[in-house]
């Protein structure tokens, strides 16, 4: 399963998804969000949604010196925080800026593709995509 950004033109910039991602981690506020929504240079032009796109061959994992980022089934990565030394190489390697930083732990925060945020996106910008196989089964 992976989170898909279906249509940013429908995004109204409400930040519900950002707050949701934080809540699923048992927190409140915005510090821990793994998804960001910002305007395309002024709200009059609409928004971009920045979140891990679940690459099949993730560039972030390739630059991690301690192999703390492990490719996950279905795309994207899983963080082994014990291995992570907080060097920030992964952040630099992600071309879309989807690796956020946890200032408290000094480690990256990356979307785990759980789909919690999509449940709180009122305007169907986000969707949790099931894997092909599951599509067939359904």
């Amino acid at each position: 399963m992976r989170l898909a950004v279906v249509d940013t033109e429908r995004c109204v910039g409400c930040q519900q998804s950002m707050f949701a991602c934080v809540r699923r981690q048992g927190e409140a506020g915005l510090a821990k969000t793994c998804i960001a929504v910002r305007s395309v240079g002024g709200t009059e032009r609409g928004f971009v949604v920045i979140v891990c796109r679940a690459c099949d061959d993730p560039p972030c994992a390739k630059v991690c010196p301690t192999e703390a980022l492990v490719s996950r089934k279905g795309g994207g990565v899983r963080l082994d925080s014990e291995k992570c030394i907080g060097c920030g190489h992964c952040q630099g390697a992600c071309p879309i800026g989807a690796i956020f930083w946890d200032e408290e732990t000094n480690k990256p925060m990356i979307c785990v593709h759980c789909g919690y945020c999509a449940k709180y996106c009122p305007h169907t910008v986000l969707e949790l995509e099931r894997e092909e196989a599951e599509h067939v089964e359904r």
Binding site: V12, G13, C14, Q15, Q16, F19, E44, Y120, P122
Partner: peptide
Amino acid sequence: GRRLACSHCPVACIHV
């Protein structure tokens, strides 16, 4: 042409 929302508002009443 566009609807917008205030931060943390699912409604998006702003009509542009």
